[in-house]
Amino acid sequence: MTSISARRLGKELTEIKAEGCPVGINLVKADDFATWWFTIEVMGESLYQGEKYTLQFRFDSNYPISSPAVQFVVGDGKVSPVHPHVYSNGHICASILGNEWSPVLSVIAVCVTIQSMLASCKKKERPTDNDRYIRFAPDNPKKTRFHYDDDTV
């Protein structure tokens, strides 16, 4: 019997392939149940018009009980969006990826949330502690204890 995480991811993947992703979101690769890549574009009027970013999901065997590790891919010509909640190493400070994660959310739901987070951005800037953070940041953003202080952006 395959693990719960593999079965659930399998179902999510089937759904994505059957129904397609929401507008602006495209599956790049999902070769295994460990790492998936999506591209994200913000549709309509926004500060990120015409820009395309790659979002990476990493799952452990406890998914969906434990949240996926989600970050923007940086390197190989890919950059992370300049956003007050996105660090230049691609890490994202969003509560749904941390203490507000719930199994009711799905990979696509996370993509949509991130997309709307970008869409509602009013000023392109890095988090104030960006330089300090990226110097000591762990590889896995889930190991960071983010302090979620601003729900408006």
């Binding site: 019997m1 719960i4 079965r7 179902k11 999510e12 969906p64 009980i65 199994p103 009711v104």
Partner: peptide
């Protein structure tokens, strides 16, 4: 199931 996304129909016998 909103957690594991398994389905169960009322008239089908689940495996296991």
């Amino acid at each position: 199931c909103y957690i594991c996304r398994e389905e169960e129909l009322y008239d089908s016998k689940p495996e296991g």
